[in-house]
Amino acid sequence: MKRLFRLATGPEDIGRSPGFWGAFAVLILYLFASPLWLGEFEAYNISFYLLNLPLALGLCLLWGYCGVLSFGQVAYFGIAGYVYGIIAGNLVGTGWGPIAGELGGLAACVVVSAVFGYFVFYARVQAWIVPILTLVLTLLLETFLGQTAGYQWRVGNVQLGGYNGMTGIPSFQVGNLVFYGYAFYYFVLVAVVLCYFACRMVVNSHFGKVMLAIREDPLRAELLGYDIRARQLGVFVLASVLAGISGLFYVQWGNYITPSQVGLVSAALPVIWVAVGGRTSLLAVAISTYALNWVNYSLSSAGNQYALVIIGALLVIVMLFFPRGIVVMLAEAGFRGSLARLRAALRLG
């Protein structure tokens, strides 16, 4: 238990002071209590901002901590969503269909990412080619799914639906308990908090240190005795499973999925969320992902056609003025400011 606590609160992320953990606890309590004053619709919207966090945290692990940029994490988001839709849709009324769907969706993510990642990492593909290959995979998936219109493209009772997508996907359900409204909100909230702590434990473990070493200098890391291909593959599969978790939540939230969810725009968004917050910090990525999803959703739902242009412009501004990410650079500036204040106070004292 002590070890788990040490791993969760270790040094490889911003936010380590007692003050931070106090604020973190207050935030979690606030989120747990907020259905007391939030309407079910608002809680449902917050679920949407939250459900993208595992996808972003996975990309943060892969890109920020391990140095491998994947431009196609939404492929696993889509694979999990579609596989869940197929399995749960065919097992409607059984009560355990959604659980089987979740397991099937995540298993599909593991298999596809492991096979794809094996060829990428064991072939020692150069780092700059990986984003292109991963993007190609997700665009191929989009193209394939886009041409699945027609009755012949069905699995059991479930139609893939071409560009119109798959509709009527069942919500998550355990026995008779259907996770809808507030229940879904709590389901996502608990899962996201667990994902965040799990990722913090990974980066603070010895495995996490080796990830950092691989990011810094793959050859040096290999010459310290690590099979970097296996490590990179492991992180890639983990990131894909996290993307799959987001995909599962997404289809359970909206009860539909379309090929555009694995298209170019969707593929670019997680990269923007991670870059804007600061890819070297899980906390920064969690904050920026929540905030940018809120901005995007609020602008889109208000009928603003420029939501994506604004998000894109934000990326350009961040790259120019906050190359390591807004949250990370503000946190460092705050930390340095506090140190300077402390030094000044000591001098005065």
Partner: peptide, 30 residues
């Protein structure tokens, strides 16, 4: 390479390749 290291070979490079963005502790723990 990594299997040779596991057999007991340790190497330093002509151009220094310590992990410059990590601190000394992290470098030694890796």
């Amino acid at each position: 390479s990594f299997r040779r290291v596991r057999l007991g070979v340790g190497l330093t490079f002509q151009t220094n390749r310590a992990f410059h963005d990590l601190n000394v502790r992290q470098n030694l723990e890796v």
